[in-house]
């Protein structure tokens, strides 16, 4: 199929001072073979309508800023080519399951709070992981996939549970917790389990699997959460069947902290 000269972008607009709810505004933009959605949005901003508001930064799939809902699918604006959409139109909306601040910009404060909760850092008995710890390549392989997350939040946008249940910790944060649990240098698995073995933590996930499908970095949050659930189930069954064997396990880390 030949590339059309122009394509129509239907962009969701919302101004908190003026609009009761978002509406779509159409823009005609030129199509170039090498242009991605982000190029088209920047063209609109520079040439047609300077009031269009959207987040972006690196243009190369690293910063995780330019996640939008493109034709009903969460995608990175910098990794989605205009030519994928034939003659269009292309409908661009903010990410789902987040409050909209303006146009394509969403409020991610709640996510950042969740991220802090899962303690996404090395927890180690001598000085919280500030020393040097040896790690073999195969130990790195255990978690490398789950460490590729760029916090672009496409997974939260795809996850229906995140939308239905705003306090559900959600895919990226849980995958990141799993990443640190699997790290041979980390000793915080018990601490994290205490926080995440919870109906709003790992047990809230019903394995829709959409987070994994939309992840641009192949982090596989759905797989990570199910693996985490198995660990949580073994942990929970141990505590249920041998409550005496589990005492003294957690206070050790608690004492370290204080």
């Amino acid at each position: 199929m030949s590339i059309p000269k122009t394509i129509t972008l239907e962009v969701s607009r919302y101004s908190p001072e003026r609009d009761p709810q978002p509406y779509f505004q159409s823009y005609e933009v030129p199509v170039k073979k090498e242009w991605v959605i982000l190029d088209a949005l920047n063209y609109i901003k520079d040439q047609i309508d300077g009031t269009l508001t959207f987040r972006w930064s690196c243009r190369m799939g690293i910063c995780g800023s330019c996640g939008y809902t493109i034709n009903n699918e969460p995608k990175l604006g910098c990794a989605t080519f205009l030519t994928q959409y034939g003659r269009g139109p292309i409908r661009i909306e903010p990410l789902r399951n987040f409050p909209v601040v303006r146009d394509l910009v969403v409020e991610i404060g709640e996510f950042l709070e969740k991220l802090k909760k899962v303690k996404p850092w090395l927890i180690h008995e001598d000085g919280n992981g500030t020393g040097e710890y040896l790690q073999t390549p195969s130990q790195l392989e255990e978690f490398r996939q789950h460490s590729m997350c760029i916090n672009c939040l496409l997974c939260y946008s795809a996850c229906p549970i995140s939308g239905l249940d705003p306090i559900f910790v959600g895919p990226a944060a849980l995958a990141l917790a799993h990443r640190y649990n699997k790290d041979s240098r980390d000793q915080g698995a018990d601490e994290r389990m205490a926080i995440l073995s919870h109906p709003e933590g790992i047990w809230g996930c019903t394995f829709v699997g959409e987070c994994t499908r939309v992840c641009p970095k192949h982090v596989d949050p759905a797989g990570a959460i199910q693996q985490y659930k198995i660990a949580g189930a073994i942990d929970g069954l141990k505590q249920f069947l041998m409550p005496w064997g589990q005492k003294g396990k957690q206070p050790k880390r608690e004492a370290q902290k204080s």
Partner: peptide
């Protein structure tokens, strides 16, 4: 402080 966030 942001009374007009749009929550779909």
């Amino acid at each position: 402080f942001h009374p007009r966030w749009y929550r779909p």
